[in-house]
């Protein structure tokens, strides 16, 4: 995948990026901290296709594209009409014919971007596909940790919650492992898929044991409908066993707290933990814009080289 400074137009899947490619995205993101805006995407049109509701990721991509001087066309489509891969492909082909070159896609189906990418010349940027990957989220998590801790190598990072359904968990495992961090995933057995250790993560079902000595904990959102499917016994029961609380954090004062948002306060995280001194959650949000600017700018660079 390229020479490490640019990205191919499939957009990054953390599974496919090398450590040096990840570092160069993070460096580019850091550089936007100073410059704030650029003309990199002047004259380009970026479209945001979101088949799942999202305020934060969508706004973050939109701000990032605008800061790079792109025009932004954003729409959400009810998931029913975008459910079939071929329908989404038709949408992309139509917009491509109108001159759109960038598609930021959020979709509930794992792997949909891998299916679509070979069939379009436009660049598809993964804003989250099913439980597969959410690359820019992992990149902004990692940038935030790099800022907090200096280097990723040797850090102990715990990802707690619904690992089974989490794209954030998978992208983080790939990215963190590549940069030399140690990753533990933690949650009830019903929400930790068998075989996840093959990605290189340790598995725990005991949050207190997992958090011991942790440098960071990434707290995943628990979709409230999981209770109906019997993945969790009850929300208070889940909170008792896996809720990240100020009390739990008090034993590990050096541990940074991350959350991809939106938070269910009192379900997976206590407000005192989310808003407390160890929280890096709002820094994550700020870094999100920078990482997305970096990804868009690097893909533009690749596209102009590829001519």
């Amino acid at each position: 995948m390229g020479d490490g400074s640019t990205l191919e137009p499939e957009g990054p899947a953390l599974q496919d990026l090398s450590a040096s490619e990840i570092e160069s995205i993070l460096d580019a993101a850091a550089s936007f901290k100073k410059s704030k805006t650029s003309k990199a995407l002047a004259g380009r049109v970026a479209t945001l296709i979101f088949s799942e509701p999202s305020t934060s990721t969508r706004s973050s991509f939109e701000i990032a594209a605008r800061r790079l001087s792109a025009e932004v066309l954003g729409f959400s489509t009810a998931s029913s009409s975008l459910l079939k891969g071929e329908t989404l492909l038709d949408t992309i082909w139509n917009l491509e014919a109108m001159g759109v070159e960038y598609f930021v896609v959020r979709h509930e189906v794992s792997g949909i971007l891998e299916e679509l990418a070979p069939r379009t010349k436009a660049s598809l940027i993964n804003a989250g596909d099913g439980a597969h990957e959410h690359p820019t989220q992992a990149l902004l998590d990692i940038l935030t940790l790099r800022e907090k801790k200096g280097a990723l190598k040797g850090l102990k990072v715990v990802i707690v919650g619904d690992i089974l359904h989490s794209r954030v968990a998978r992208s983080n495992i790939h990215g963190l492992k590549k940069l030399g961090a140690k990753v533990t995933v933690c949650g009830p057995r019903a929400l930790v898929p068998s075989g996840i250790e093959s990605l290189g993560a340790a598995v725990s079902h005991d949050l207190d044991a997992a958090l011991s000595g942790a440098d960071a904990v990434n707290v995943l959102r628990l979709q409230l409908e999981r209770q109906k499917e019997n993945f969790v016994t009850s929300l208070p029961d889940y909170y008792a066993a896996y809720g990240v609380t100020a009390e739990r954090l008090s034993k590990i004062p050096g541990c940074a707290v991350l959350h991809p948002g939106p938070m269910n306060r009192g379900v997976e995280i206590e407000s005192a933990a989310a808003d407390g001194p160890q929280s890096a959650i709002l820094e994550q949000v700020s870094n999100g814009v920078l990482v997305r600017m970096a990804v868009l700018a690097l893909i533009e660079e690749w596209r102009s080289h590829a001519g």
Binding site: H132, R170, S194
Partner: peptide, 15 residues
Amino acid sequence: NEGPAAAAKGLRGAP
């Protein structure tokens, strides 16, 4: 199938 491949792809597996 349930197992490492499903876990990696982020798909539910049938045991």
